[in-house]
Nucleic acid binder design. Structure first.
Length: 422
RNA sequence: GGAGAAGUACCCAAGCGGCUGAAGGGGCUCCCCUGCUAAGGGAGUAGAUCCGGGUAACGGAUGCGAGGGUUCAAAUCCCUCCUUCUCCGCCA
């Protein structure tokens, strides 16, 4: 959600920033509604003040034996006026909230300006794509040949875009989850949480998935419960409607969850393998901090995500998303992309974002710099650390041997048990 | 899922149409007394959001789980929902 005060005080700046994301007309609409809203408030609150005052005097007048019937009649009329104006105000509030809630965040000044993913900026490349003296196979073929993955059975029981891991495959997925969680908790300073996979509407609104992207979510029959698309949703919302003390910050949580995405609109893309599924595993990192620290925190988040790829010795690159490609709630996003031989290019495996106060404003997460200080909004950040299925795929593809076996990265051996998968 | 009970400020808790922005405790903060970790006395203690205001002083609105309704007036009456607790049923 946007900061209405900023829109009031610096409309031109907001306009310019949103233009880089292809949004126009927003500031004008907001200002018009805001002006209307405030005019009604002044009006209706004056009436309420009057009613309060008169109502308070009625018992005394009664005691004095005066006739209060005319006053009560007058107040009845005032009451009706109040309720008419109150409902007009409610409509404007709803309209204003809707606009503020469905318009994407302002980009950070350090986010490169660009219209789509072609204008994202590469920050660095780490590691080299493996050179193979044989024709590399895709992970779905490797996985099925080794009996690790069974997409046919997954489709039979659940439909397309589901995965089924068997035997050593299931164990590898589990080993990756443990490896990631342990790294984040013991080395990177995160506190692990295990959270519900089903959340309420207000929770989805808090992090920005709703109201705009309802059709992208899995909604339960009651109409107000949703399967989480990422652990960012329940974990960030743990702190919804709270005022934290500065000592609590930064908060750093990591969580493993399954994630559920309808993938509406991506029909035909990445139909094979583990890349794009309705249900996938992810280890997530969430950081909540003071506004002054959030860009340092973003670098920390990024390096924590990178630490997993580095330990696994997977080749990857870091890109900064441009204004046009940055997600709805984010002000700045780094994507980590892992080298995927079957695609012949780098594929997203983590997205690390600073949402600044955008989510905090929606979810009402505040902090006090010191006791008695005025509460301020925190900044929230989230990043994958990492998408587990895609990491699985990357390991299979990058560490495949000529005979179709997979060499397990050394860092993973304590979790997986052996150093070769065949 | 069935039957009951309850949700009031940091915590416990009274109130059940106007005198309650909310009694009384506890806690916390400050002060006094006391030669001192005990005890006693006094004072303070909604925080928050929104609106107005030379954006200051200050004033106003909202607010007793949430949302509606009745009324001149609601913590108090009515309706819906949520949460917690107890018992029963079911279940990992």
């Amino acid at each position: 959600m946007h900061d209405i005060k900023l829109i009031r005080t610096e409309p031109e700046k907001v306009k310019a920033m949103l233009a880089t994301r292809g949004v126009t007309g927003f500031v004008e609409k907001v200002l018009a509604l805001d002006e209307k809203r405030r005019a009604i408030i002044v009006d209706v609150e004056g009436l309420k003040a009057k009613r309060n005052e008169v109502s308070k005097s009625i018992p005394q007048l009664k005691k004095e034996g005066k006739d209060v019937a005319p006053i009560m009649a007058e107040m009845k009329a005032v009451g009706e006026e109040i309720s008419t104006k109150d409902s007009a105000l409610k409509d404007i509030d709803a309209e204003l909230k809707n606009i503020l809630m469905t318009t994407q965040n302002l980009p950070s000044e350090t986010t490169p300006v660009g219209k789509d993913e072609s204008e994202n900026v590469e920050v660095k490349k780490v590691g080299e794509p493996p050179k193979m003296d044989f024709e590399p196979k895709a992970h779905w073929d490797l996985g099925e040949n080794l009996g690790l993955l069974d997409f046919e059975t997954a489709a039979k029981i659940s439909g397309s875009r589901f995965s089924l891991y068997r035997g050593q495959g299931a164990k590898l997925e589990r080993a990756l989850i443990n490896f990631m969680l342990d790294t984040h908790t013991t080395e990177n300073g995160y506190t692990e949480v295990m959270v519900p996979y089903i959340v309420k509407r207000s929770t989805m609104e808090g992090t920005g998935q709703l109201p705009k992207f309802e059709e992208d979510s899995f909604k339960l029959m009651d109409g107000d419960s949703f399967l989480i698309p990422t652990a960012e949703v329940p974990v960030t919302n743990m702190y919804r409607e709270s005022i934290l003390s500065a000592d609590d910050l930064p908060i750093a949580h990591t969580a493993y969850t399954a994630c559920f995405r309808s993938e509406a609109g991506s029909a035909g893309r990445d139909t094979r393998g583990l890349i794009r599924l309705h249900q996938f595993n992810k280890v997530e990192m969430v950081r909540i901090c003071k506004p002054d620290d959030s860009y340092n925190e973003l670098e920390k988040l990024l390096s924590d995500a990178e630490s997993i790829l580095q330990k696994l010795k997977l080749p990857y690159r870091v890109i900064t998303l441009c204004t046009g490609d940055t997600g709805f709630s984010a002000a700045k996003t780094y994507d980590l992309e892992v080298w995927m031989p079957s695609y012949g290019r780098y594929v997203e495996i983590s997205s690390c974002s600073n949402c600044e106060a955008f989510q905090a404003r929606r979810a009402e997460i505040k902090f006090k710099r010191e006791a008695g200080a005025k509460p301020e909004f925190v900044h929230t950040l989230n990043g994958s650390g990492l998408a587990v299925g895609r990491t699985f795929a990357a390991i299979l593809e990058n560490f495949q041997q000529a005979d179709g076996s997979i060499k397990i990265p050394e860092a993973l051996v304590p979790f997986f048990g052996t150093d070769i998968l065949d």
